[in-house]
């Protein structure tokens, strides 16, 4: 009972903040007199969002962006896992490779995008490469950390019970490393998603990011706001899917 009241209070506090934001939004765009070009009124935004959801063009943009993200994630996760796996076979290899990968992880790769555009053109390839590049290092680093964290007592016990080296790799070390490897998958996915959408905003001819940038450039502010909300929903759904997929094994 007390717990339910507490939950209710939390819900009320959250609602209060949301209402305050919406209220402020309504006020500045209404009586506040801020131009609808600067801040889109909530009503217009919702109307645009409604039209967006029912327009077939939107869903082709969703398909474009979605497939780019999936491709980027697949490349980042598989290549990151392979490099991370190979780089963590011995303690010495880890000592050599982990700092290198960590170094790569600190480089702000966002500034590479104009170059990728130049190299790979304005279509999907540059977005996929950009997303994969940004996700790769997180995946490789987490794979290494995962294998590094495997308890050596576990490995020794397995040897003592006569496990073959192959069994040790796949039946002992991999499952033990899995939680950190999976968190690498989540981070890599989040990074690939962020960078693909950003890449579309900077240079492309289709996709949700492109539409957002275009509406901003042409000062269709309410449509621009509608795209922001639409992308937030799109990302929210993707997060739920990833969360489900990467936590089933625990």
């Amino acid at each position: 009972m007390r717990r339910r009241i507490y939950q209710l209070k939390i819900w009320m506090a959250q609602t209060a903040v949301v209402l305050a934001i919406v209220g402020l939004w309504l006020y500045v765009t209404g009586p506040g007199g801020v131009s609808p070009l600067l801040i889109a009124p909530p009503g217009d935004t919702l109307q645009e969002l409604w039209q967006l959801i029912w327009s077939p063009g939107t869903w082709s943009d969703v398909a474009t962006t979605g497939s780019e993200i999936v491709a980027a994630v697949l490349i980042a996760v598989s290549s990151g896992f392979v490099i991370g796996f190979l780089g963590s076979r011995t303690a010495f290899r880890l000592e050599v490779w982990e700092p290198l990968v960590a170094l790569g992880y600190t480089i702000p790769f966002v500034v590479f995008y104009p170059l990728l555009l130049l190299w790979l053109g304005i279509d999907e390839a540059s977005k996929i490469a950009f997303g994969a590049l940004n996700g790769f290092f997180a995946m490789a680093l987490n794979t290494m950390k995962g294998f590094k964290s495997v308890d050596q007592k576990l490995v020794r016990t397995a040897y003592a019970f006569g496990a073959t080296p192959r069994q040790i790799e796949w039946a002992i070390k991999l499952p033990a490393a899995m939680p950190i490897v999976l968190s690498g998958v989540r981070i890599a996915t989040a990074l690939a998603l962020i960078t693909v959408i950003f890449a579309e905003m900077v240079g492309s001819r289709k996709g949700l990011g492109f539409q957002l940038a275009k509406t901003t450039g042409t000062l269709q502010t309410s449509l621009s706001y509608a795209y922001i909300i639409f992308i937030l929903m799109f990302v929210g759904i993707l997060h739920v899917i990833i969360e489900r997929a990467s936590s089933t094994r625990r």
């Binding site: 070009l37 950003f198 940038a213 901003t216």
Partner: peptide, 11 residues
């Protein structure tokens, strides 16, 4: 992806 909020800040 916080980049999607960029338009708000730019405008």
């Amino acid at each position: 992806p916080k980049a999607i909020f960029l338009p708000i800040f730019l405008i």
